[in-house]
Computed example of a mutant assay.
Amino acid sequence: MSFQLERGLFLLDFVDHHAILGVPIDADIQTIRKRYLKVARKLHPDSSAVENEADKKLASEFLSKLVNPAWEKLSQEKDRAEYGIVLNLKGQQATRQGNWELGNLGKEIANASNPEHFYRTSLKGLADKQYEQLDQTLEVTGQISELNMVYLMRKEGQGGFNRAETSRTIYTGSNLPDSSQSSVRPTATSQPQPARPESVADQYYRRAEGYMAKNNYAKAVLELRDALQLEPKNGSCHALLGAVHFKQGQATMAKIHFNKALELDPTNAIALEGKQKLEKTTGTSANSKNSTQKPNAKTNKPDDKAGGGLFGLFGKKK
């Protein structure tokens, strides 16, 4: 038996494993595992409460052809990371494509003032009944995938839905418009252009900053490497990756990424500061024998005391 799911992310030639398991697209491995075990117990012939033979067969099919493959993909860290990259790319594709025929929940999250809350609440409600009535399982899974798709689109930049209520600017004391200009439609010459929507690489960069703040350099490296697979010429990601290597005492790798960042953007502040500190730390070159010297070596203490560097990436005040 083959299952046809033609809704949400499935329409983009993509198997939405999160929808199959009924978990959010950003669920951690513990959440995914807990959900998988719950669904597997419900569907497995030895533990299922289903008595009807036809339903038992259907439950077994769901388990072997949908649920188990989804768990196998999401349970492996490397596979899950690669899958996450493709998932975000599908969100971008859905945004560019636009004009989707959405069900009620899809329309509601598209216009929700708080899409995050709506997404979590609606997904939980659907997941609770996803495998209760097996004849409705594929329909519910499709609804979850549509939620996933529109949620990704909203994260990409209001999801391409041109509605005034979802694109309204919230003015604070720091960004009040010039009273001499129109308050409805600022011109390009009088107002800065709106910031571009956050790209997938930006999201990796932001997460890497968070990991750096917690001194979790290994995860920061993984985030930035994934970002550079998507955007190899992203100077900001190269600069931050150089900073991570610098903090780890990996001077040669730090120099490579600082140089690449400056090649792409000669004004990048992180790369400029990082390269300067790198040269002071290593003496002359990151390729010297002392290239593995830690950034907090004695030769670097005066600079560390002078300041923490941009975003506190280079050293801490004593």
Rank of each mutant, 00 (worst) to 15 (best):
A239W: 06
D13C: 02
I256N: 13
N268W: 09
S180I: 02
K280I: 04
A306C: 02
K57M: 09
K289M: 11
G307P: 04
L228D: 01
K233I: 01
D303N: 00
P194V: 03
T121A: 09
A19W: 01
R35Q: 15
M149E: 03
Y131Q: 06
R154V: 02
V221Q: 11
R206L: 12
E53V: 06
A70F: 05
R207K: 14
V221N: 04
E156I: 05
T166K: 12
D13P: 07
N162F: 14
Q181T: 05
K129D: 01
A227D: 06
A261F: 08
S122V: 05
H117T: 12
G173Y: 12
G98M: 11
Q191G: 02
S182D: 15
M212W: 09
A254Y: 01
I170C: 07
H257C: 14
Q248E: 14
Q248T: 05
E263H: 14
E165Q: 15
R206N: 11
Q143S: 00
L278W: 12
S60T: 12
N290I: 07
E116Y: 13
A213Q: 15
K78C: 00
G210Y: 01
A19N: 00
A94D: 05
K214M: 13
R163G: 03
R80F: 08
K73L: 12
G249E: 13
T141V: 09
I32K: 08
D135A: 09
S288W: 13
F161E: 13
Q248P: 04
A227R: 09
A49R: 10
Y211M: 04
F161P: 00
R207M: 12
L278S: 08
S180A: 11
L228I: 04
F258P: 09
R35L: 09
E139C: 00
M253P: 08
L126E: 01
E82P: 00
Q92E: 15
G249P: 08
K255V: 09
R80C: 03
G235P: 08
A188Y: 12
N104Q: 13
Y83G: 02
K247Y: 03
T267F: 13
R120I: 03
A243N: 07
P186F: 03
A49K: 14
H44S: 12
A188Q: 13
R7V: 00
K219L: 10
S179A: 09
Q30S: 15
A251T: 15
P197Q: 13
P115G: 08
N104W: 10
A54M: 05
Q92V: 14
Y83T: 01
V50N: 07
G84L: 06
L240C: 02
E273C: 07
L222W: 02
G160D: 07
K78R: 15
L11N: 09
R196P: 04
Q130P: 00
K277A: 02
R96C: 02
T284V: 08
Q276A: 11
F258W: 06
C237I: 04
Q76E: 12
K301Y: 05
R154C: 05
G173F: 10
E198T: 10
A127M: 02
I25D: 07
H44G: 04
